[in-house]
Design a protein around this nucleic acid. Structure first.
Length: 118
DNA sequence: CCATTGACCCTGA
DNA sequence: ATCAGGGCCAATG
């Protein structure tokens, strides 16, 4: 018999889950923090997804964090790269056009994990 | 242990 | 239409 001790939900490899989803985003497509959060249950909040992205640079496997934007298609994380333009250049290298820190035709390039992955 | 801070989003007035 | 506030989870002081 176990005492009351709250099972306390595992710290959850939430970061790893996020990284895994981001790795599934095809080149030339983009997704959002909120979409990932929603796909993973929407209970963790989009914020934590953003935090996971920050930790993405320490992940074992490569995580195309540049394909993750906020819900407006803005490159909110660009300042966290080696250079402020690294994110934009990475996107443009995949054929995505960026104007004023915003992805052009964002709604068309949007890749929703809840839809694509079921 | 409490307070503050984030690569965010939604709701209500 | 704009503006303010709360909530989410994790890390840091």
């Amino acid at each position: 018999m176990k005492p009351i001790t709250a099972p306390a939900p595992e710290p959850r490899n939430f970061f790893q889950d996020v990284h895994e989803v981001v790795r599934l985003v095809p080149a030339g497509r983009v997704t959002t923090y909120g979409a990932i959060a929603h796909y993973l249950g929407a209970r963790h909040g989009a914020r934590t997804v953003g935090y996971a992205m920050m930790a993405a640079h320490t992940a074992d496997q490569y995580v195309p964090a540049h394909r993750v934007l906020n819900r407006l298609g803005h490159l909110t994380g660009r300042l966290h790269y080696a250079t402020p333009f690294a994110m934009q250049e990475a996107l443009e290298a995949e054929g995505i056009r960026v104007v004023e820190d915003r992805v052009v035709a964002f709604s068309e390039l949007f890749w929703d994990p809840s839809v694509e992955l079921g």
